[in-house]
Amino acid sequence: MLRASFTTEEAVYGVILVAGMIAVSGAHGATSLSVFWTVLVTVVVFWLAHLYAGTVAGHGLDKDRIVGLGESFRHALRRSLGLLLSSLIPLVILLLGAGRLINDRLTIWLALWMCVAVLAVLGYIAFRRRGAPWYIRLLGALTTAAFGIVIILAKALIH
């Protein structure tokens, strides 16, 4: 379940959300700890909203059978877990800064670049699962990572 949850569009969306939140909340000298809490709370709220919406949308009649609330919830949980899990690596990096193991500015940039790396891995896995040749997998990784790079460019231009 963990592997299937992490390699979903929700995981890609989650990493992009996290990168955007780091870029916005990390502006103007914010501490790693304040960015950590902003990102964590935002991701949890988005995840809960996604879980709720998926449960409600999946509940009811589906191709001549009734989908119960429990079944709908389990399906939505599997689908939405990637949104939550995709934030773990950047959040751990932000905690390293909060613990003063890395200075705040470097921590925020490191967490942003880690989002790009996670996006690249997700893109690569998505194309590998479809049996694409290595060069298409690489192109998929670069294309997916480009979303994070756009956020980093926006952060650089803002500063």
Rank of each mutant, 00 (worst) to 15 (best):
F46Q: 07
Y52W: 12
G97R: 03
L112V: 06
L77N: 05
A11L: 07
C115R: 00
F127L: 13
L106F: 12
W113H: 11
L61Q: 13
V116M: 04
H75E: 11
H28F: 03
V116A: 12
G26P: 03
S72N: 13
L61N: 11
S32H: 01
G97P: 01
L77P: 04
G58M: 11
L81Y: 03
V12L: 09
V116L: 09
I89G: 01
L61E: 13
G82D: 02
A11W: 07
H75M: 01
R100A: 15
A154S: 06
I149Y: 01
H75I: 09
I151C: 06
G29V: 03
A111P: 04
T7P: 05
I158T: 08
A141D: 08
L81T: 07
V116S: 12
T107D: 08
V45N: 09
R100W: 07
V121W: 08
V41W: 03
A156M: 02
S34P: 01
M1F: 01
I136G: 01
I66L: 11
R78G: 02
S80K: 04
V118Y: 08
L110A: 12
G20M: 11
A98H: 05
G131C: 05
I152C: 10
A98K: 03
L91T: 03
L142K: 06
P133A: 05
R137I: 01
A120Q: 04
H159C: 00
I136A: 14
V12T: 15
D64N: 10
L110P: 04
L101V: 14
V150Y: 07
V41Q: 11
A145E: 04
V56A: 10
V18L: 07
L95N: 05
I136M: 10
G54A: 08
W37R: 10
L110Y: 01
V150L: 13
G97N: 14
I66K: 09
T8R: 02
V118G: 10
G68E: 08
H50G: 14
T143E: 14
L2V: 15
R137M: 15
S87H: 08
F127G: 02
L77Y: 09
A30I: 00
A19S: 14
H75D: 09
W109H: 15
L40A: 15
A19N: 10
A145Q: 08
G60I: 05
A117Y: 07
Y52G: 11
L83I: 02
V12E: 07
K63E: 13
Y124C: 10
R129A: 12
S87I: 08
L101S: 10
